[in-house]
């Protein structure tokens, strides 16, 4: 464990909690892409199946359970409890255009051709594009609530910190996982546009306007 990975995990946890609390307290999921949240639930489910097969540490296991629990709770709030506030018209990204290519890529490019490894690879590739429906929705509505931008900032920051973690681990431990690094780069690049707007428009206006 190193400082980049720890702050990355905490940033990821913060994002997940921020979103869950925002929906719960405002009793509304307006402006939130339910499709992205479903993709994240799939990402955690396919990646953390090893909860059933191996124990790494209390931290590892508890964080995985928290991530999975919050992901499904968020999906439940969006599609069941506050479904009346779900903005389905703007959440129109065709996720099959993500899931099918990612699934094919996971079968073609992986570290070894076993079910667990392919599911893990699928999860890594899917996570890198899972935020697209959310970013697409914001570009369609043209704005996002401030709290949503904080959620996206923490979520984007987490994988950027993981990139630093992989540099650290390569230098100190000789650890190298090109699949995770490649997907992490793609994931972080997708946020760059948002990062720029978040920093330049930070604090100026209540409703952050996002240029399409």
């Amino acid at each position: 464990m190193n400082v980049f990975r720890l702050t990355g995990d905490l940033s990821h946890l913060a994002a997940i909690i921020i979103l869950l609390l925002k929906i719960w307290k405002s009793r509304s999921c307006a402006g939130i892409s339910g499709k992205s949240q479903i993709l994240f639930a799939v990402v955690f489910t396919t990646r953390y199946l090893d909860l059933l097969t191996s124990f790494i540490s209390l931290y590892n296991t508890s964080m995985k359970l928290i991530y999975i629990g919050c992901a499904y709770a968020t999906v439940y709030l969006i599609y069941v409890k506050f479904r009346a506030t779900y903005d389905g018209n703007h959440d129109s990204f065709r996720v099959e255009f993500l899931v099918v290519p990612v699934g094919g890529l996971a079968v073609l490019i992986n570290h070894n051709f076993s079910l667990m490894e392919i599911l893990w690879t699928f999860s890594i590739y899917l996570e890198s594009v899972a935020i697209l429906p959310q970013l697409f929705m914001i570009s369609k509505t043209g704005e996002a609530e401030t709290i949503t931008t904080h959620y996206l900032f923490c979520l984007g920051l987490y994988r950027a910190l993981y990139l630093l973690n992989w540099i650290w681990r390569y230098y100190f431990e000789g650890f190298l996982d090109m699949i995770a690094i490649f997907a992490g780069l793609v994931q972080t690049v997708l946020y760059c546009d948002f990062f720029y707007l978040y920093v330049t428009k930070g604090g100026k206006d209540r409703k952050k306007v996002m240029l399409p």
Partner: peptide, 10 residues
């Protein structure tokens, strides 16, 4: 191969 180390990351 290095990549096959145990998957200890989240």
């Amino acid at each position: 191969k290095k990549a096959n180390q145990t998957k200890d990351e989240l």
